[in-house]
Design a protein around this nucleic acid. Structure first.
Lengths: 158, 158
DNA sequence: GAGCTCCTACTCGGATATGTGTTGTCCGAGTCCTCCGGG
DNA sequence: CCCGGAGGACTCGGACAACACATATCCGAGTAGGAGCTC
């Protein structure tokens, strides 16, 4: 899985803590997590294209959440970074191991292997879709109650 | 996800159908699925190292299942091909977005982001572990009852 | 002193190199079968 | 005719390239704020 997913999650947490008052530029975010600025910027663009965050151009520009954290599922984030294609891609190995003699009817139904893999992947997606940035934010605050204040200090003002 | 996983699944189905009477060489398997023989061979080696299939060297050698299909979970197969490392690797972005001022105590607990992602991945693993090659085999036979016979024809005899 | 203009600094956006991992290929080690020679 | 041995053919095993995608970076387009000039 892409490294960018983890970065995106943390950045979204930061943006949630920072609030909608003023946008946070990439440089600020990269500095606080000690990440390569240019590459993080690329991930943020992906999030912006997906409509998860909003970008404001210009000198005082930056990024902020496009909607409240409760409305952003982890599935949304993963999809934005990784794309929509399933992890297990069925190549439809045609002959299905039975040579040329196999009846065509056997290929009407979806491949049993694919079905099994998709079932597992669906569970994964379901779990991701059931959790929101707000949930993660709450969990993080439970561990570190000072996180919101520190984040606002870091991003809220110059 | 590696292409090899799909190949491995189909091959294991074939081996299950072929039975333990005589081993099936890579060339035969590659031919029936129209796959690059050398690369498929590499995947089979991975399965053998994982103890899922057994390899017999020599002229009449080949591969056969190391244990009955009921004892081979899809998780086993994925692990054999993909490795044991989790898809989402937490890089422990140290400062966790709150700058240098963050208290050390905040880092004792596991990262909330990581916990959420692991939860989803656990669901995926659980689903994979709950399904066996025998299950997939049964599903495939339900769709194509002639599959076992055809496979035995293809692999069972010269 | 107030207002307008230009200029600079800063930020997003996309196009461009690089590195690592998957994909694909090759040749050597070992085993079984077959053919040939001898008894 | 039966038995033993050598040769060949086939298959697994691991080492060796080629390609694709993730990683990393750079420069151009656009905007806000401020300095300077004019009235």
């Amino acid at each position: 899985m892409n490294q960018g997913v983890e970065w995106a999650m943390h950045v979204l947490l930061s943006l949630a803590w920072a609030g909608d008052e003023r946008p946070v530029p990439t440089a600020r975010l990269a500095a606080s997590y000690d990440l390569p600025q240019a590459y993080l910027h690329k991930q943020l663009q992906a999030l912006a294209r997906a409509g998860i965050i909003e970008s404001l151009p210009g000198a005082k520009g930056g990024f902020l959440l496009a909607r409240p954290p409760e409305k952003i599922t982890l599935m949304d984030v993963v999809t934005a970074i990784e794309g929509t294609e399933p992890a297990f891609a069925c190549t439809e190995i045609r002959k299905q191991g039975m040579g040329e003699n196999a009846p065509k009817s056997a290929f009407r139904q979806t491949c049993a292997v694919n079905a099994a893999m998709q079932r597992a992947e669906l569970e994964w997606r379901r779990s991701l879709a059931a959790q929101t940035i707000a949930d993660v934010k709450a969990a993080a605050e439970a561990h570190a109650p000072s996180a919101p204040r520190l984040a606002r200090q870091a991003y809220g003002r110059g």
